[in-house]
Simulated assay, not measured.
Amino acid sequence: MPEKARVRPVDEADLQEKTLASLAPYRDQDGRVYTIWATLAHHEDALRRYLVFSNHVLGKNTLPLASRELMILRIAARAGAAYEWDQHIRIARRAGLSDETILAAATGAWDGLDELDQVLLAATDSLVERQGVDDELWSRLAAHLGVEQIIDVLYTVGQYLTIATVINTLGVQVEGELALDLPRTGPDADQKPDAHQKEVHA
């Protein structure tokens, strides 16, 4: 993750009216367009099209809201995507998830989670690592979900891997302080964060 933004967000004054209209639901409590979307606004046509898909995944998804957020936070933690992590910590808390549950999902400590969330998180990891699931995991998914919901599992993972890639490549910076520290999930997870990580989190 770059220490500074490689691509700066676009000023609203420079955006087309139709882009501003598409971004109307994507503003923070102060009325500012979220940094991720203002950054992607460098390619306005693509952004408007992408927002249609994003709106389905975030707003019309057939998966339970809390379960979907645990999946997204697992992806953000694995990718080290601090901006994605921070935004979805806030959504997850509004969905009623405790920080303890969030951190359990993010770090792989799933034993205390319900069966559906364990299956969804296992599928998330498999899709991140292998871009697919084996027959055993497919059977577990099919025991809990219909085909529509399984497709939404695929869309959710794909969407938020895309966003994590954007964040980490373009250097999208967290807006203010992290709502909850981003856990480390790699092989060196037990080591203390280095100076670079601390700067990214600031």
Results as ranks from 00 to 15, higher is better:
L127K: 03
D28R: 02
T35N: 13
D135V: 14
I72G: 08
L161A: 05
A41E: 01
A79D: 11
L116C: 06
L113K: 00
I150S: 04
L20I: 02
K18F: 03
A109L: 07
L40C: 13
R90I: 12
R48L: 00
R78W: 06
Q173V: 10
A104N: 11
V147H: 12
L170S: 02
P183I: 01
A179P: 05
V7A: 11
R68T: 05
A41I: 05
E17G: 02
P25Y: 07
Q16K: 02
I75Q: 01
P2S: 12
A66G: 09
V7F: 06
P9L: 01
H196G: 10
Y34Q: 09
E12S: 06
M71N: 05
D117S: 14
M1W: 04
A189L: 12
R130H: 15
Y26S: 01
L63Q: 03
A95L: 03
E175M: 10
R68S: 01
L178C: 07
G146F: 04
P183Q: 04
Y50D: 08
P9Q: 03
E175I: 06
V119C: 13
E115Y: 07
D125K: 07
L145E: 05
I72D: 04
D188S: 12
H42I: 10
R6H: 00
A104G: 09
A189I: 05
A179Q: 08
Q29P: 04
A164V: 09
A123F: 09
W37Y: 14
N61E: 06
G158N: 02
I72S: 03
R68L: 07
S139R: 12
L15S: 00
R8D: 08
Q197L: 15
I151S: 11
A77N: 05
L141A: 11
E17Y: 00
P193C: 07
G80A: 09
I163R: 06
I151V: 15
L97R: 03
A79S: 14
E177V: 11
L70P: 04
A79F: 10
E3K: 12
E199K: 14
A122W: 01
L65H: 05
H43N: 15
L154T: 13
A81G: 02
Q131F: 12
T35F: 02
A195E: 13
D86H: 04
A189P: 02
T107F: 08
P25Q: 06
T169N: 09
L127D: 03
Q131E: 15
G132R: 14
I72N: 03
V133T: 14
D188L: 15
D99G: 10
H88C: 09
L23A: 06
H88S: 07
G186F: 10
T39L: 06
K60Y: 02
R48K: 10
D11S: 12
R93W: 00
V57I: 13
S54D: 13
S139N: 12
P193G: 03
E148A: 15
L70K: 01
K192G: 11
H43Y: 08
T185V: 14
S67H: 08
E69R: 02
V174N: 08
D111E: 13
V133E: 00
S22F: 00
D28F: 01
T156V: 08
A46S: 13
G186A: 12
V153D: 06
W85Y: 06
A202H: 11
Y26P: 02
G132E: 03
A123V: 05
R8S: 13
R93C: 04
R78M: 10
R90Q: 14
I36P: 00
L178Y: 04
W85C: 07
